[in-house]
Design a protein around this nucleic acid. Structure first.
Length: 285
DNA sequence: AACCAGTTCAACCGCTGGTCG
DNA sequence: CCGACCAGCGGTTGAACTGGT
């Protein structure tokens, strides 16, 4: 699922990264760090622009990056943070160790956006239905459904309206039982007291209240400590040490450090510690 | 089996904000 | 203060994949 590699008019390679390019970039950064993204590809022996290298490193090659397999907790956290912060993907990513802004953004657009829309529709239905408690529920469903269709394209994507797609915190209806249509047109009946908040959306996605109440420790547990200030027990001579004979050695050291210090968020920072600028060091290959 | 439409996600592009001379 | 440079961010693109007909 990647763009085919090609060379642009400046002779820079674009598109999919080959394993060889990955290795070169990884090896270079593990050894010298990313002292200057613009200059880095020259020294690393890559025909790529600095931006491309940075992106590749940050999103895929950086140690500790997690791929796919989002847990329910992560999904819920992304939704919660998106609700609070809007499209501040980097800020959201900062709360999810190992996840990158790009991946979270993709995940949001492909998985969560849909769900929050459904959740929002359901919430609006709940609100509307609760206002017309005694009126026929079926009538309410049809009207709301039509309204959703109208509204769909006009939801403001604006930080001032950060809660575009989800409003699970809206007031609870006073009735004990409520039926509504989910986006897949299935009728869902929700029961609960007016003080409870344990209703569940039709597709099985837990609303935040539910998650919060059942997994409070998850929300309150502090995330990863910032890496600043933490130093791995580097051997004398830093990562350029003769004791670290190969890239694998560096990786082993890194992962050992990861075990010693759980929750590292930015391996690149570590590697910055002893990364010399390769002045006069031009021949990588 | 072939085609088509929808989905996914890696990568690109343009803009913004910070830093430095 | 101003302009140049750079890193980072967020929106968009497009090719591969997937599922339906």
């Amino acid at each position: 699922m990647v763009r085919a590699a090609f060379f642009d008019k400046n002779g820079l390679k674009k598109g999919a990264w080959s394993p060889e390019e990955d290795d070169k970039l990884k090896a270079y950064i593990m050894k010298y760090g990313h002292w200057n993204w613009r200059e880095l590809p020259k020294f690393a022996g890559l025909s790529r622009c600095g931006k491309s290298c940075r992106l590749r490193w940050m999103n895929y090659l950086r140690p500790g990056v997690k791929y796919g397999n989002y847990s329910k907790e992560e999904g819920a956290l992304i939704m919660k943070l998106h609700k609070q912060l809007g499209n501040k993907w980097s800020k959201i990513a900062a709360e999810l160790p190992g996840r990158t802004d790009n991946e979270i953004k993709n995940y949001w657009h492909t998985h969560l956006k849909k769900r929050t829309k459904e959740s929002q529709s359901a919430t609006r239905l709940k609100e509307k239905c609760s206002m017309e408690q005694s009126s026929e529920i079926a009538k309410c469903e049809v009207n709301s459904k039509n309204e959703d269709l109208k509204d769909e394209s006009s939801v403001p994507n604006n930080p001032l309206h950060p809660i575009l797609e989800s409003s699970p915190l809206s007031p609870e209806p006073s009735s004990n039982e409520l039926s509504y249509l989910t986006s897949d047109s299935s009728l869902v009946t929700v029961s609960g007291t007016s003080s409870s908040s344990n209703w569940i959306a039709g597709d099985g996605l837990l609303c935040f209240e539910t998650f919060e109440s059942t997994s409070e420790d998850f929300w309150t547990q502090p995330f990863v400590a910032d890496l600043d200030g933490y130093r791995l027990p580097l051997p004398e001579g830093g990562l350029g040490s003769p004791y670290l004979a190969s890239y694998d050695d560096v990786m082993d050291l890194f992962y050992q450090g990861m075990q010693d210090f759980r929750g590292i968020s930015s391996a690149g920072d570590i590697l910055h510690i002893c990364a010399p600028q390769p002045i006069g060091w031009l021949n990588m290959q």
